[in-house]
Nucleic acid binder design. Structure first.
Lengths: 341, 341
DNA sequence: AAATTCTTGATTTACGTACATCAGAATTCG
DNA sequence: CGAATTCTGATGTACGTAAATCAAGAATTT
């Protein structure tokens, strides 16, 4: 049988009330007594029954997700997953609020973060835009004692408690190797389509991609990065233009969202050309394109896992609990047409 | 506020005791009264607070994992993950027992399953050996009301509640495409190393592999399957022999465990040859081989996820609860040297 | 109509923890 | 040393549910 507060009281030779004061950091306990109780807790290996504690407290976890607006499937999927999580809130005692901010807009993100100051929150999850002022705003929340988790795009250098997203440098490197090996020994140019160099995830993917390309596939030349702002229209224009302007393009790496535009350009301008294409984010569009052979591989992060993981981590952090590291690692999914879910 | 049993009682115009009798399927309630209570439950949208119920019941979930013995890293990893889960049992109210059976031995597995009859279990997880008598034994457990989950290798046609493992046909197809595309247009022979055709997962991987190879890479010829029984020694012998006997082998697909032997053969007999190799299961050995370029891709199933998922599903099934489907899908991991965790 | 069984209500205890109150003890201060 | 202060103990209630007991009313059988 698992030890209870009564066992601590007996072991430490104090009353239940004193044990309670120690456990919940309430005042009114002499240092020597406190140490006696803490020793007893360690000795008998007591662990608080969180379920019972939450029941007694009537605790709920108020959480906030700060998500960028954006008309691309990945963001739609992310919203959907957070809403999915909301439907489960009665079960896991959460109360989730979504705050929308314009994409790639650091000041707006800072304003949203600062607006949360003073609220009694069990955690904040945000898709970070990488800027010093955002970092500072995050640090302010952390200092105020609120668990903060970055989602999809990280904010290194900040004091955020956790990052729920993939290793984007690794993702870029993986994309490079897939593209390089799928192209065999062919020689030619590679076009890269990004969303914005303002977000860390895109920068990191590019960094990983470029380094493997340079080191291991010197016969492939990287063209200057196109920034499509994760917008289908812009992406379509950029890729169409690039393809019409050059015949030496043999591969494309799309490391952001807004692939609907890329696919349109491929179907129209890219018609009849032998292109090897690797993109990020599995959506209904990229899935269809993978199946019909328009693209060759999709790298993906599972938004559902990211959201659920973020929630678990925020709750655990709020309770000062451990998390299962392996369970919270967000993996890079590689989809070929054969292993689509 | 979430409705409680008191609210049901008030809404249905009955006492708490009657509500309890209905909720816990205790006898002594007239049909009309039962229906009145059930209607009230639906109307006010009551959902039982499982945490509180478990607290009141002092419920623990006695679970059994039936695992095959076997001296290969994947099985060692699986055992380790189950033991990991055991260390968390006080937290999630489980009580896990491991039962070992010889690998690929249907009668032994049947005996182990039948030995569980009559025990008060909240769930049984097993790595299935695909045989009619095993199916029957599983069905007997299910009929007895015990939740049964297959792990790693499935048992289709049985009434098991859930399969916690990857889509092995998809895995085989994926391996074929990776191998095929990595080999460019080269012509040559492919050697396949399996564990045993007695387990469904190996058969399915082979099936998926063969079909994609035949359909899309006709220039590659598949040699007869070698069965290494997931044993490093046997695998080493088989692969060494194959490599010495033929110069036209350009690719290897190892779809089982026991890769330590394969790697040894590659290092010794395969020295200096240009081989493209795709294997299953990420272990310290395959990881090192991936990093030093001996092999080109590793397909993996995360044993930790499988074990945790199996536990979640068994608990939910025992409680008659829903599971989050997306969370319980075990994904096929594809590792290149760039995205190793 | 009496005896029996079946239903239902009322009430209590329990699970492990949180939290509040009040009285009494120990300690510190003047 | 006594008074003021700080600790500590004892106790009760609550959270949402489970489960048991006993009494009483309703329905059924004889």
């Amino acid at each position: 049988m698992r030890p209870t507060v009564y066992d601590i009281a007996a072991a430490a030779g104090v009353s239940l009330a004193t044990v309670d004061r120690v456990l919940n950091r309430r005042p009114g306990v002499r240092l020597v007594t406190r140490e006696k109780v803490e020793a007893a807790i360690r000795d008998i290996g007591y662990v608080r029954d969180v379920a019972a504690a939450n029941l007694a407290k009537g605790r709920i976890y108020p959480l906030v997700f700060i998500l960028p607006t954006g008309d691309n499937s990945f963001m739609h999927g992310l919203y959907a997953e957070v809403r999915q999580a909301m439907t489960r809130s009665t079960f896991d005692r959460t109360e989730i609020r979504i705050v929308e901010v314009p994409a790639f807009d650091a000041p707006a993100l800072v304003a949203a973060l600062d607006a949360l100051q003073g609220l009694d929150l069990a955690g904040v999850a945000l898709v970070a835009t990488d800027a010093p002022e955002v970092r500072a705003a995050v640090d302010r929340l952390v200092t105020a004692g609120i668990p903060v988790v970055t989602l999809v795009s990280d904010l290194t250098g900040s004091t955020r408690h956790h990052y729920a997203g993939v290793d984007n440098i690794g993702a870029g490197r993986t994309a490079a190797r897939l593209l390089g090996r799928f192209l065999g020994g062919c020689k030619g140019d590679i076009t890269i389509l990004a969303g914005s160099m303002l977000v860390r995830d895109h920068r990191e993917r590019l960094e990983g991609f470029s380094s493997v390309m340079a080191a291991e596939f010197p016969q492939l030349r990287l063209l200057p990065v196109l920034e499509g702002r994760d917008d289908p229209e812009i992406a379509n224009g950029l890729i169409s233009e690039a393809l019409s302007g050059s015949n030496s393009i043999i591969g494309i790496y799309s490391l952001g969202a807004g692939n609907r535009g890329l696919l349109k350009a491929l179907k129209e301008t890219g018609q009849g050309r032998e292109l090897t294409v690797v993109v990020h984010e599995l959506t209904e569009h990229t899935r269809a394109a993978l199946q019909d052979g328009t693209i060759d591989a999709v790298l993906n992060q599972d938004a559902g896992h990211e959201v659920r993981s973020a929630i678990r981590v925020m709750k655990a952090t709020a309770d000062g609990q451990e998390v299962i590291a392996g369970q919270e690692r967000i993996r890079l999914d590689i989809f070929l047409k054969d292993n689509l879910p």
